[in-house]
Design a protein around this nucleic acid. Structure first.
Lengths: 304, 304
DNA sequence: TGACAGTATCGAATATTTCGATGATACGAT
DNA sequence: ATCGTATCATCGAAATATTCGATACTGTCA
């Protein structure tokens, strides 16, 4: 690399002051930064002054109501923010111990698919140190997903640009409700749904897709209910709160033992599916790669 | 951001020890790291121990010949390396003062195109604080281009994935040599070139493209000479060392006053051109955007 | 103007880092 | 086997950097 700077063997001076600066930039206020950091106001002031002196750059304009970042200050904060985030990510990852794999899981997927296969996983990879983090389908929308987990299972359409995405299998959806609910709200054709309470989590995109396939659309009058997570949605459906769309394999047991019924008796193709997602820009460790491979192998060999 | 960690208001502890760790990881040796850092060996040892204790992670395996990073150690170094690089980039950028624009320029482009337009630039943007960095067409191949400059001019085909690329104008190439050289090596048709010394900088891709257009190819027997930079190539060509390919507008003066001649009397279309390149992932400041816009405007209005 | 909410500065107290010397351990050559 | 050498670890003392609490200073608002 002609003309390149050898970056690794010179240290960033004042990096602690830079961190104090970051907190000030965040809060716009020396005093509050000091409270946040559990140190005295004079200490924070000292760091800011030191940093400005050392860099010969004015980072803040002092006002009567606190600190106003200069253009330079904001520029620095931007870069340092990214930098510290990367460092924190590294610390988070090694804190887990070697062979660690942190998986962000959907509770429903964890209990109905993964849990019965975990024994097999540990047989095949005894060194693997798995740590399960629950999330409510929000993994791909976190601002720092790599701090939360190394990879995740996410339900959706798979169009998440900042992740490496692997679709697990094509899904079909079953429309289900409790037998009692069906008796009270006869469902013979799609339009009957417009009089039912549509249960969902997160958003109504699945319902919209399903209705659109029958030439229908959601309107404001449609009764609906957003629930906390899929487990809660399942029990609510069983308890007769309304109708739900579920991946058909998920509710197979309930349909067989009669706690849920499928009014149409058939399932529907959908553009939604479970995906393995890995945050881009973070090189996965060997263990993470192994887990990724394992879950993909499992899923491709699974006839659901 | 449900479940997200608020990243900005907690500081990274031990970050100085982490930097010492980085140097050790780089050099694989406490003693040499200490020399590099101009501190005692015991001080470096102290930091490594402190870091390992605080993180409860073994970062190095100690051997008789130095330090062997553990898997965890390498993982940490990877992330921290990226993080510190971002921080250094930030510091580099604000060190220039507000309105700073660091341009990585090709010397030939600087002297024959930009220099005559600089007055105009400062008239239009008096606050702009321009700093010119020379490079030999290596900007896009630097490992940390954003530390070197905010944007650059690069000659080539424009296929540089980690940069935002704007092609300035379509180029034509003139094949030129000195009148004396032409007399000694008559050039009437493309095959005559195979007996000439082909001068170039960097690599032979331009010659390959030019020869391919005539159904010819470079072979090992072909005399050629790689020169340091284009200025040197120009004077070498004038001094009769061989034939060169230049963007035709660059050698217009020399062709007019007879210090160079164009044996074929015509110019050739090429896939090469000058480009403005901006490293991706770094938000350009207002001044940088202004300079970018200015140079693009200039170039589109330029009939060369 | 005075109250207030903010930052800056000072000397003293405290915490952290560094030093130099020494110890401990592994490796390779004799 | 033993010595010489290179390595990292540990120790107490010294040097340096940070923090504290008190106080000074500054601009805003009523």
């Amino acid at each position: 690399m002609a003309g390149d700077l050898n970056a690794m063997v010179d240290i960033v001076r004042n990096i602690n002051s830079i961190q104090v600066f970051m907190v000030c930039h965040e809060l716009g206020n020396v005093t509050r930064a000091a409270q946040e950091l559990n140190v005295s106001q004079s200490s924070v002031s000292y760091h800011i002054k030191k940093l400005e002196d050392d860099l010969s750059v004015t980072l803040f304009r002092r006002t009567a109501s606190g600190l106003q970042p200069t253009e330079q200050g904001s520029l620095l904060a931007q870069h340092v923010g990214r930098g510290l985030a990367a460092i924190r990510t590294g610390l988070d990852r090694i804190a887990q111990g070697p062979g660690a794999v942190r998986v962000a899981l959907l509770p429903m997927f964890a209990s109905r698919w993964l849990s019965s296969r975990l024994g097999q996983l540990f047989e095949a990879h005894p060194e693997m140190n798995l740590s399960i983090q629950n999330h409510n389908n929000s993994f791909v929308r976190m601002s720092n997903p790599e701090r939360f987990a190394d990879l995740g299972i996410q339900w959706g359409r798979g169009n998440w640009d900042s992740f490496h995405v692997t679709r697990l299998w094509p899904e079909t959806l079953a429309l289900v409700c409790s037998p009692d609910y069906l008796q009270a709200h006869p469902i013979r054709q799609p339009t009957d749904l417009l009089r039912c309470t549509l249960l969902h989590v997160d958003d109504t995109r699945m319902w919209e897709e399903w209705l659109a396939a029958s030439g229908l659309a959601l309107d404001g009058a449609q009764p609906q209910m957003m629930l906390e997570d899929r487990h809660f949605q399942l029990s609510s459906t069983i308890n007769g709160l309304g109708v739900s769309l579920f991946a058909s394999w998920l509710v197979q047991d309930e349909l067989e033992n009669g706690t849920l019924v499928n009014p149409f008796g058939s399932v529907f193709a959908t553009s939604f599916a479970y995906h393995v997602v890995v945050p881009k820009g973070v090189e996965p460790s060997v263990s993470i790669q192994r887990f990724h491979r394992w879950i993909c192998d499992q899923s491709s060999g699974w006839a659901h």
